[in-house]
């Protein structure tokens, strides 16, 4: 599950229209929105699937919301 790899203080919400997912770090106040559904994010983050397109800056920001090292995400999306 996506929640398992989020940093402790990060909360997440996927929108009902399937347009994307937003993350909020309750400690830093940082907010991130990506145009990926929860299912796509799970495939990207947990399974390392490579057919999911994410902008580099979003990937970098996303890595700050996760327990995973940023390299593992970037490798997944190469």
């Amino acid at each position: 599950m996506l929640h398992d790899v989020l940093l402790e203080h990060v909360v997440v919400h996927s929108f009902s229209d399937g347009s994307g997912t937003v993350f909020f770090n309750q400690v830093t106040g940082e907010t991130l929105g990506v145009s990926l559904t929860a299912q796509q994010l799970e495939r990207l983050v947990l399974n390392g699937e490579t057919d999911i397109s994410v902008q580099a800056q979003d990937l970098h920001a996303l890595s700050r919301m996760l327990k995973l090292p940023s390299q593992s995400l970037e490798k997944a999306n190469v």
Binding site: V22, F24, V34
Partner: peptide, 25 residues
Amino acid sequence: DKTQSFMQLAQNAFNYGVIGHDGFA
């Protein structure tokens, strides 16, 4: 779309970062 709406709304929020989860939710 809702992700765009949220991000634009959050940029205009005064205290949402301060009140934390309740603001985000």
